[in-house]
């Protein structure tokens, strides 16, 4: 159960920084404008470990608005569309994969 914050930062592809909003917990993404957005399409994309570390440090400094910031992989589609890079982030971005009511 190592926190992502405790892990060494080494990215192998395009990545972003994500967190949850402190007041209501919703998923948010760090933007290039040093703010946060609830839309993955607004996320700042980093491509090197140094860039990732800098973006994460900047995000962590904003402890009031966001909680639990970490780096996560993304896929960049033709045309610049940003897609989550793993299942966990797909679920965070798109929501539950299940029916809430019996079906």
């Amino acid at each position: 159960m190592t926190s992502p914050l405790q892990q060494k930062i080494k990215i192998t592809g395009p990545s972003m920084v994500t967190a949850n909003r402190t007041s209501d917990g919703i998923v948010i993404y760090r933007t290039a404008q040093q703010g946060w957005s609830a839309s993955l399409s607004d996320a700042a994309i980093v491509r090197t470990s140094d860039e990732a570390r800098a973006l994460l440090n900047e995000a962590n400094a904003d402890d009031v608005v966001a909680v639990g910031a970490y780096i996560a992989p993304v896929e960049l589609k033709d045309g610049g569309e940003i897609k989550p890079g793993n299942l966990r982030e797909r679920i965070r971005s798109k929501g539950l994969t299940i029916d809430l009511l019996p079906a």
């Binding site: 949850n20 209501d24 917990g25 919703i26 639990g68 679920i91």
Partner: peptide, 13 residues
């Protein structure tokens, strides 16, 4: 918050 049963999960608290 943990002492009051509040965790942070994927989508929310």
């Amino acid at each position: 918050r943990l002492q009051n049963g509040v965790y942070l999960q994927l989508h929310a608290y």
